[in-house]
Amino acid sequence: MKGFGTDEKTLINVLSRKDPLQIEVIRSTYERTFKRRLVEDIKSETRSWFEFGLVQLARGPLLADIHNLFDAMAGPGTKEIVMNDILLSRSNADLRAIKSAYQQTFRRSLENDVKGELSLKTERHFLIVLAANRAEDSAPVNPQQVEEDVMNIYRATEGKVGTDEILVCSILSNRNDNQIRAVAHTYKQKFNRDLDTVIQSEFSGHMRDALLFQLRHAVDKYMHAAQLLEDSMAGLGTKDHLLISRTIRFHWDRNELANVKGAYQHRYKKPLATRIRGETSGDYQKLMVACVGE
Rank of each mutant, 00 (worst) to 15 (best):
S89Q: 08
Q285T: 02
T157M: 12
K261N: 05
R107D: 15
E31M: 01
E136L: 14
E80C: 08
G53W: 00
N255E: 13
L120H: 15
H125W: 04
E117V: 00
P20A: 10
S138V: 14
N84A: 09
R246Y: 13
N178L: 10
E31R: 05
T105S: 07
A263L: 01
R155T: 10
G278I: 12
S201C: 13
A290D: 08
R47Q: 12
A97D: 15
A64Y: 10
L88K: 06
V219F: 05
T105K: 11
E279H: 12
V146I: 15
D113C: 00
S170P: 07
L87I: 10
G53H: 03
V219M: 04
Q104R: 14
N255P: 08
F34S: 04
R277Y: 12
N133R: 11
A74T: 15
R249C: 02
I23Q: 02
G262T: 05
G282V: 06
A182R: 00
L69T: 00
A210T: 05
V289F: 01
L257W: 04
I180N: 02
L236Q: 15
D209K: 09
A131Q: 14
R96G: 10
P76M: 11
R134T: 03
D41R: 06
L95V: 07
Q227P: 05
A182M: 08
L172C: 13
L110D: 03
N176Q: 07
L95Q: 07
H241N: 09
Q179N: 07
F126G: 00
I180A: 06
S119N: 14
L172N: 06
Y284L: 07
Y264F: 15
L118M: 03
A64E: 07
M288F: 07
V82G: 02
G116Q: 04
T197E: 08
R96S: 11
I244N: 01
Q144S: 12
A263C: 07
L172I: 11
E256W: 08
R90V: 09
V183Y: 00
Q227N: 10
L11W: 04
G278K: 09
S204V: 15
L287M: 04
S232F: 07
V289R: 05
F126K: 01
F191A: 05
L243M: 12
K79C: 09
Q144T: 13
Y284W: 14
K160D: 15
D164T: 03
T197F: 08
H206V: 14
L120S: 11
S170Y: 13
I81K: 12
Q56Y: 09
V161K: 08
L167I: 08
I26E: 01
I248S: 00
A184C: 02
W252Q: 02
S245F: 05
L195W: 10
M233W: 11
L88W: 06
N112Q: 11
G60F: 04
N92K: 07
G116D: 04
D240T: 03
M151C: 13
L236M: 15
D209M: 08
P20R: 04
P271N: 12
A218G: 01
T46P: 06
K2N: 09
V150D: 04
Q144G: 10
A64F: 09
K2V: 13
N112F: 11
V161H: 13
Q179C: 01
T274H: 11
P271M: 06
R59P: 02
R90T: 06
T78Q: 06
